[in-house]
Design a protein around this nucleic acid. Structure first.
Lengths: 352, 352
DNA sequence: CCCTTCAATGTCAACGTTGACTTACTCGGT
DNA sequence: ACCGAGTAAGTCAACGTTGACATTGAAGGG
């Protein structure tokens, strides 16, 4: 008995992956030229109804999907994609910003590409390069590297650059920021009004713009109130929840501990709250950045709208496309104090 | 005195946006052929050192960025981009998944495109189409539409499809899921062990896979313990924080209120916690999905690892690329109970 | 009935890059 | 001096689509 070898057609009939149909495949099946198919799929009107239907039928049958790469290339390399470069997608602050960008861009038929620098300054240029090579039509970035001058050329070459949450270094780019100083100052003033004289500040990094601004606001408000500014009450090394918690413990274990604490960001807040749970003293607390359970927990915060920050950034980018040479715009979004109880506690007498 | 008209060169010298330099521009400046530039920038080795340096210098001078679109097109339309379609980027669960995908893909030199369906089932196909037209090399999706059969063709055309958190409907795709039933059952068993006989369930939607699985786990565990299953204690209409909070209040205001509550997801948890704050009774509580402050607040949860879910999904997609015809893989990631106090409260006697 | 106008469709080249091939040298061995 | 092998470089076409322009035929005006 002979062993029948598989027929060639059998092998051919089970392709692991057939090639995607192109416009020409559709054209052949519909019996028209490629150009006509092009017209149909890009919705031009000068095509007869019968032809249009025939083309549509052929396209559907072949499961044709126009190749956006080819289209963008032909149209001059300007894509319908915008890039967003941020530090850590896990941080709800950034993801809210991303959601705001995504929504606004989607309204304009644009798609968002995300890349994370993992909060590594050395990673920024690399991640940005990957986006530019994909010809994003604009670049929204939360700058982390100490210098963004390398983006000047891109701006000149027609790619709008918008900085989010922090201004760029050595680059005249549009930016969207929060009223950081004023927010921190409001928080301090509110605490002072409740009788606090010793207020701690827990922040992340002395090189970070938002940290510095908020710290300035904090100091200015203390000075304006005629109070003492003390380095002892300022911590700039709370990079994450863990270190913020530790910093809080240390602050409270000091000789002359504060009766109130201001946390410079959401991560720090989480850490401070964890630390405060272990203390019998009732420390007043205000956090910068609102968060999910803050209302439930009665946490007073300096609130703002991160999604709106994304929206505004998207708008700046879209506007900039139309006037590449104009002076950079800086949008400052308001912060406001949301009183929920934790920031309204009076100074704990046992701590004095 | 005559007015000198601006010289043509002056006008030309101030272009609002000059065209991006191409490979040929670099070639011209370096005095070599385009192909040689191509070799240099794509790191091929058969180029002399001097030529390479000359080309690099020219490229730098012109701020040349290779056009990835053109490259991908020439190379056969397979890009270095993967698509992630999810419901709401604001939900920390999804953003953690996204972070996991992004990280794993970045390790392989791939970029992630994100699009949100805004939890609108009708939006899914549209968003997916946009990605496929951009020729993402694989598609990771949190399915929301009642039917994904429209993706079968894409799979056949060589685009891996991986479903995240929920399986697809009418589509043989790889998927990554959590052990939902088991997680919910564990939570119930733990509550029963502490003496609870009446346990409430607050979930989001009777059409949602995770909801149904978790509800099944809850019911099964009750039945296994010989306890009564009552529709009165099950709520399937807590779509957001607000409604979860309301549902909790209603549950507790009932004739025979539960002494413990299981929330089916992080949004529901937030709502339940808000509602419980307004109650004098001490209700035991367990939430599905871990969250930032859960440890600080002493909230017992059914925990899992969303970032890992993203990582696994990315791996499935990468594996699938190499064997498009194999049977679908289903990865089930473990859930485990994290005891923190809220779930270990005994039944409140005043509530009996 | 011819000429214009316009709608429907087609032809061709180009977007920027790279794979397949070819060409021009150089070098070592005999 | 000659050949084969190897290295460095170049030529050309093609990826899938669309803009510019050309062609066809029918309708409408005089």
């Amino acid at each position: 008995m002979e062993i029948t070898p598989p027929r060639a057609t059998e092998l051919v009939d089970v392709p692991s992956a057939m090639a995607r149909p192109t416009l020409s495949d559709v054209a052949r099946l519909a019996g028209v030229s490629g150009k006509t198919v092009s017209r149909v799929i890009s919705g031009q009107h000068n095509v007869s109804v019968e032809t249009r239907e025939r083309v549509m039928a052929a396209a559907t049958r072949l499961r044709f999907r126009p190749n956006h790469l080819a289209r963008d290339l032909r149209r001059g390399g300007v894509t319908t994609t915008v890039g967003f470069v941020m530090g850590d997608l896990t941080n709800p602050f950034y993801s809210s910003v991303a959601a705001g960008i995504e929504r606004e861009m989607a309204r304009h038929g644009l798609t968002m590409v995300i890349a994370s620098t993992d909060d590594d300054p050395g990673h920024e240029a690399q991640v940005v390069a990957a986006m530019l090579e994909r010809r994003v039509r604009s670049l929204l970035i939360v700058p982390i590297a100490p210098d963004q001058s390398y983006l000047e050329g891109e701006r000149q070459l027609g790619t709008p650059v918008v900085c989010i949450d922090r201004p760029a270094h050595n680059l005249a780019a549009d930016s969207v920021l929060f009223a950081n100083r004023e927010g921190a100052a409001m928080a301090v003033r509110s605490l002072v009004e409740r009788g606090h004289r010793k207020i701690g500040f827990i922040g992340s990094s002395p090189t970070l713009y938002t940290h510095l601004e908020r710290l300035s606001g904090y100091r200015d408000a203390l000075i304006d109130a005629g109070l003492r500014v003390s380095r002892e009450w300022e911590r700039s090394d709370a990079h994450d929840t863990e270190s913020a918690s530790r910093a809080t413990h240390e602050l409270l274990a000091g000789e002359d501990p504060p009766t109130a604490i201001l946390a410079a960001n959401n991560r720090a807040s989480t850490g401070v709250l964890r630390a405060l749970r272990d203390t019998v003293r009732r420390i007043a607390f205000i956090g910068f950045d609102d968060f999910d359970l803050a209302d439930t927990l009665g946490i007073t915060v300096v609130a703002h709208d991160p999604a709106n920050m994304g929206t505004e950034a998207a708008r700046l980018a879209l506007t900039r496309e139309r006037d590449l040479s104009g002076a950079p715009t800086q949008v400052v979004l308001p912060t406001h104090l949301v009183h929920r109880g934790s920031g309204e506690l009076p100074p704990d007498q046992s701590a004095v």
